[in-house]
């Protein structure tokens, strides 16, 4: 039998997969360890499929040229992701506007290597006017008006999950939820950071729990989704996220110092994920238990 190849990368190797100008898709919870490496390396001109505060952080750090955007909410008292808002209003980033159903339809078109798939949501909205890639069409069967959604095809999907074996068989804890599998199926390659690497036999013991068979690479990342949650491991660090939102909001009103500090102290200075976790503090991290 030919020998199987292990697909474990260290965090620096993994981060070197991301190049200037690529299209990356970010899963949920966001693979923050990898995103912090992207920021540290100063990657530029990314097209990003993502929403919320992980997207906002990449924009704040100057990594983003274009966003495939269906929702950029802020939370913590701020309705709109603050850096996203500022960058769009100043014309610094381009937005490929869509909505949730259209996003999943475009990802599915990429997964099936089709030129488009139809979706009805968005008919009667302003979307086709501001995103000329979305074409109103008459369906050839019943003549109904639908939207033809072109493929949304990331070069790389970056995901976070609970466990995987060395060969890239991923088991999300409590199901993949949200968009992770849409992103994986659409992308050319999938890179998954995990809380823990498990023996291959443990995967075989419960193959129904395998959510992605054969991701292209696996990276160890205990607490790697911090400040977001990781099911089966820890909850979202709302106090920490609030600090970011406040800093990013202040930057919007001409006070960029705390945002710069945040980016320097948590993203640019720590050379490794271990260095980052040290800055956050073990006591703080251990307080994020689920139950």
């Amino acid at each position: 039998m030919p020998e199987r190849h292990e697909r474990i990368l260290d965090e620096t190797e993994a981060a070197s997969w991301v190049h200037d100008g690529m299209t990356i898709a970010v899963g949920s919870p966001a693979p923050m360890m990898l995103l912090r490496h992207i920021i540290r390396r100063g990657v530029k001109n990314l097209t990003v499929v993502d929403s919320g505060l992980s997207l906002d952080l990449l924009i704040a750090a100057g990594c983003v040229r274009k966003v495939v955007s269906y929702y950029a909410g802020g939370g913590f008292g701020v309705p709109v992701a603050p850096s996203f808002r500022r960058a769009v209003e100043r014309g610094e980033i381009e937005v490929w506007e869509c909505e949730e159903g259209i996003l999943t339809t475009g990802l599915q078109a990429a997964a099936q290597a089709l030129p488009f798939l139809p979706w009805r949501g968005g008919v009667g909205t302003s979307l086709p006017e501001i995103n000329p890639d979305l074409k109103l069409m008459q369906d050839p069967i019943r003549g109904e008006t639908l939207i033809a959604v072109p493929p949304i095809k990331p070069d790389l999907a970056l995901l976070h999950a609970a466990t995987a074996d060395a060969y890239g068989n991923v088991q999300h804890c409590g199901g993949p939820g949200w968009l992770d599998l849409f992103l994986h199926r659409a992308a050319d390659r999938t890179l998954v950071q995990v809380e823990r690497i498990i023996p291959n036999e443990e995967v075989r013991a419960n193959p129904w729990a395998t959510t992605i068979a054969g991701a292209d690479a696996i990276v160890r990342a205990p607490y790697g989704a911090h400040p977001f949650y990781s099911r089966g491991c820890y909850v979202q660090d709302n106090a920490f996220l609030r600090t970011y939102v406040e800093a990013a909001t202040a930057a919007q009103t001409g006070k960029p110092e705390s945002l710069h500090q945040y980016l320097t102290y948590y993203c640019r200075e720590p050379a490794t994920h271990g260095d980052y976790l040290e800055r956050v503090g073990i006591k703080h991290l251990l307080g994020l238990y689920e139950y």
Binding site: S51, S69, Y70, Y71, A72, G73, G74, P79, V80, A81, F84, R85, V88, E89, E97, C98, E99, E100, G101, R120, G121, G122, V123, G124, T125, S126, L127
Partner: peptide, 21 residues
Amino acid sequence: TTLTQGVRLPGSGGAADIASF
């Protein structure tokens, strides 16, 4: 929920689908 006079808002999320279906 997308944009008003020069102000950028979050966008649809799933709201357009809920409103449609």
